[in-house]
Structures are given as C-alpha cells and as structure tokens.
Amino acid sequence: MLIKLRLLGFFQMMLGTMYLDIELPEKSTAQDLWQILVRRYSQLQKEDMSKIAGMTVHGKYVQVENWPFVLLRNGDQVDLFTQMGGG
C-alpha cells in the first residue's frame, strides 16, 4: 500500500524534503512507517528522533506511544512533525 507522507518542522529540515510516497506492506502500523524512515535516513539513526515527534493520520493526532497500534491504510495522508520550536 502507498502512504502519502508529509514531513514538517525539523523532519523536513533534516531530511531535505516535505513529501514522500512510502510503500508499506498491508497491515503496517504507524510505527512501521517510522522504522522505514529510520532505516532509510542516517539522520534518524544515531538516537531516537521520535522523542518530540507528533503524527497525524488524516488530520487525527496519534501519540508516539500509540504508533505500534495504529494500522495504516492505502492512501493514508500522514503528517510527521516535531512539536517543539522556540528556545
């Protein structure tokens, strides 16, 4: 299945793109999607970069803790973003 992923905030800046189409096996979860990104991009590998990450699936917020339990479907629009900005 194909997931339409939009990268926002620090994720856009560190991966250099806003939009990715990600092929995932059926019954993949939000966590599987994250793992695909981690495998693909060395920028995400040195430490757990999901610490301050947020995700929405079709605009609905999914907590990091729930990523392993959220099943994705073909054509899902997923936003992945970082939730902190100012210092």
Binding site: F10, M49, K51, I52, G54, Y61, M84, G86, G87
Partner: peptide, 21 residues
C-alpha cells in the same frame, strides 16, 4: 503534546534536532 515535551526534555533537546537540521 508540545507542552509535555517541554516538561520532559526542556529546551536543550532542541540542540539535538537543530544540529541535524
């Protein structure tokens, strides 16, 4: 969720993300 991240990590976590960005 953003406020919870400030509670959990403080502003210095931004060093980690900004350095990759």
């Amino acid at each position: 969720p953003g406020a919870k991240d400030y509670t959990e990590w403080g502003t210095v976590i931004l060093l980690n993300y900004k350095n990759k960005s």
